[in-house]
Design a protein around this nucleic acid. Structure first.
Lengths: 204, 204
DNA sequence: TCAACAAAAATGAACGTTTGTTTTTTAATA
DNA sequence: TATTAAAAAACAAACGTTCATTTTTGTTGA
């Protein structure tokens, strides 16, 4: 009984999803036709329906697949941090976030597609409990006496979340909104400045 | 020669655009049909084309109209600030940004629609020169000796832009991404914490 | 070793809707 | 009644999906 080798099935799905992701991000879900996905991925229109029951299922599959990739990236990023409030590590955090935003820019665009065409149905989970995960992961680092003294009552989890979101948002605006230099200075200067700023919140 | 009174024409346009804005935000540009806009605004399909040549023109008209409203809001917001780095004014800034995000949430969603379906064609201008406008408007405030001493070389324009974007981004995530309490604490606590943080950047 | 076979995969035409827009018809008004 | 506004009907194109058909492919029997 002839059956496609699982590796080939996976490869075909990846090929379709890669093309579909690009198109969904550039022209939205409803603005992208199955015909265009078929043509550009060199898979016949009918055959796509052997891999996905509906267009919605194709979208969901992309979100889930890339969602796993992004979770892995986030974990790796967090694991590389050992002193979350030292200037050098803040610089490193910024640089890694920049990488993630620029390398996986399409994924973040897909998030906007989800917000505007699906009321954030698929992506809601990505924001839930973000700060709490920070607090959990850096419990030890956040409770160091020197840091707590410097923060003078400021919640370290909140400060870290602020830092994290700030860098993400900065690069997302630069990348996705073409807000070239929206801080009025080069990326490197912004990163340097913000790193100084966040270090100064607790250290003088 | 009977001709509609300009006020009535304007009222009709507003009626159409209000409905279209809501629909574009909830299901995207391509996901919204002219028929649905017609039905919900109680204007016949054919008649909409007496007001707008094409669907694209309707979209553009909405962006321009609400863009003016948002620019006015931003100007009023900035005019209310006299000491940009005092804790009380930072709290006020946060509260006003919150208002703008919650009252005009649809407008920001439209920005995401524009990014994902028009490559940010209509909204690009909204980010250009943002920080430079801050620097211009607060030239006097930013050059106060006490502040400059406290900032120790940090660019006040950058710090203010960071603050501005931070509050906007925080409330946008809360409002549009349903990231309920994504900092792991209530809005009021976040605002209080961030205000303390930004004051502490320059004042001890 | 290799044609014959059966099952799966791939294809593209076809289907019924829905789309944006245009054209035609009707209603309203100075 | 002349002119515009509003409504309704009509149009071609495009949509997501289905389906009949062809091609491919691993196995089998000689």
């Amino acid at each position: 009984m002839p059956r496609l080798h699982p590796n080939i099935v996976d490869a075909n799905r990846r090929k379709i999803e890669r093309v579909a992701l690009r198109l969904f991000c550039a022209q939205g879900f409803h603005g992208t036709s199955m015909r265009e996905i078929a043509t550009r991925s060199h898979v016949s229109l009918g055959n796509i329906y052997n891999y996905y029951k509906t267009k919605d299922e194709l979208f969901t599959s992309i979100v889930n697949h890339y969602g796993q990739v992004m979770n892995t990236q986030r974990d790796r990023l967090l694991e590389s941090i050992h002193a979350p409030f030292e200037r050098d590590e803040i610089l490193g955090l910024a640089s890694r976030i920049r990488d993630v935003v620029y390398r996986y820019g399409d994924f973040w665009l897909l998030m906007y597609v989800d917000v505007t065409e699906f009321r954030n149905r698929h992506f809601e989970k990505f924001f839930l409990g973000l700060a709490d995960e920070f607090r959990n992961r850096f419990r030890r680092e956040f409770s160091q006496p020197q840091l707590r003294r410097g923060l003078k009552g400021l919640d370290p989890g909140m400060v870290f979340a602020a830092m994290w979101m700030q860098f993400f948002n900065y690069f997302l605006v630069e990348r996705l909104f073409r807000g070239r230099r929206h801080f009025g200075m080069a990326d490197a200067a912004v990163v340097k400045g913000l790193s100084q700023m966040y270090e100064r919140v607790w250290r003088r």
